[in-house]
């Protein structure tokens, strides 16, 4: 299904929120196994860009092509496509009325139609994967922010996605909890997962990213290897941005 190692492609994506022109012509191709890190000032459209990939935001103009199929086509079964694209949010968005295990099994059972026992086995394996096997029966409210975020990652991974999206997943965490989440993501990258990561963690961007995008004003202004962009930025706004955050 994958064309020339390309997993997902955005073609001339525009997005308006009312009169606010947030994305102004995004073209992007993400190849299998790459870790694309997106940085940029707030309001630059990076989160919106990420969320158009699994159609949480429907682009006003343009096409999203996933595994060679245009998923912005109105006839596409969006629910089916989303089972292949995991997303982790800044605010965790765990279901507070379900245990960690329940958070993971619900979609396995109701969307993928797995039997309860099989779903539970898979969920426990994924919790073990993120180092939270012993928290299976805890409710989100009794977990720390970092633990909640790792459960959220496990919940997305359990669907066996081909692509993982991370939307500022450490921004809501206390500083001492950031590392455990980044380590989990690093492990995932090492396993070869294709990832698109919106983040403010420049260290992570440099070390884990295979490709770095800088967005500003709804456009991709820089696109290259992280080391090249960090060391030799060409876009003046990227230079200014990096001088502020580094």
């Amino acid at each position: 299904m994958t064309v020339n190692g390309e997993l997902v492609r955005l073609e001339n994506i525009h997005k308006w929120f009312g009169d606010n022109h947030v994305l102004r012509g995004i073209d992007l191709s993400v190849s299998l196994g790459s870790v694309v890190v997106v940085i940029g000032p707030s309001g630059s459209g990076k989160s919106t860009l990420l969320r158009t990939i699994n159609l949480l935001e429907e682009p006003t103009l343009g096409k999203v092509i996933f595994e060679g199929k245009e998923i912005t086509d109105i006839r596409t079964n969006v629910n089916e496509v989303r089972t292949h694209i995991g997303i982790v949010f800044q605010a965790f968005n765990l279901f507070p009325h379900m245990t960690a295990l329940g958070n993971i099994t619900i979609a396995l059972r109701k969307v993928l139609g797995q039997k309860e026992k099989a779903a539970e086995e898979l969920a426990r394996a994924e919790l073990d994967h993120v180092g939270l096997a012993e928290k299976a029966d805890e409710y989100p409210s009794s977990l720390s922010g970092g633990q909640q975020q790792r459960v959220a990652i496990a919940r997305a991974l359990a669907m066996r996605p081909k692509l993982m999206l991370f939307d500022e997943v450490t921004s809501a965490l206390d500083p001492e909890l950031v590392k455990e989440v980044l380590d989990t993501m690093r492990g995932l990258a090492d396993e070869g997962m294709t990832m698109v990561v919106v983040t403010h963690e420049m260290g992570f961007a440099r070390e884990v990213g295979t490709r770095l995008l800088f967005t500003d004003g709804g456009k991709i202004m820089e696109d290259g290897k992280p080391r090249d962009v960090f060391d030799n930025p060409t876009d003046p706004r990227c230079v200014a941005f990096l001088s502020h955050v580094l």
């Binding site: 949480l56 949010f89 109701k110």
Partner: peptide, 27 residues
Amino acid sequence: IERGQMEAARSLGMSYLQAMRFAIVPQ
């Protein structure tokens, strides 16, 4: 109920009604 709950449910492939039934309405 926070918008993120619906987004989380939909992003896992649930339909609108499934998201309502399993994520939103119980809360």
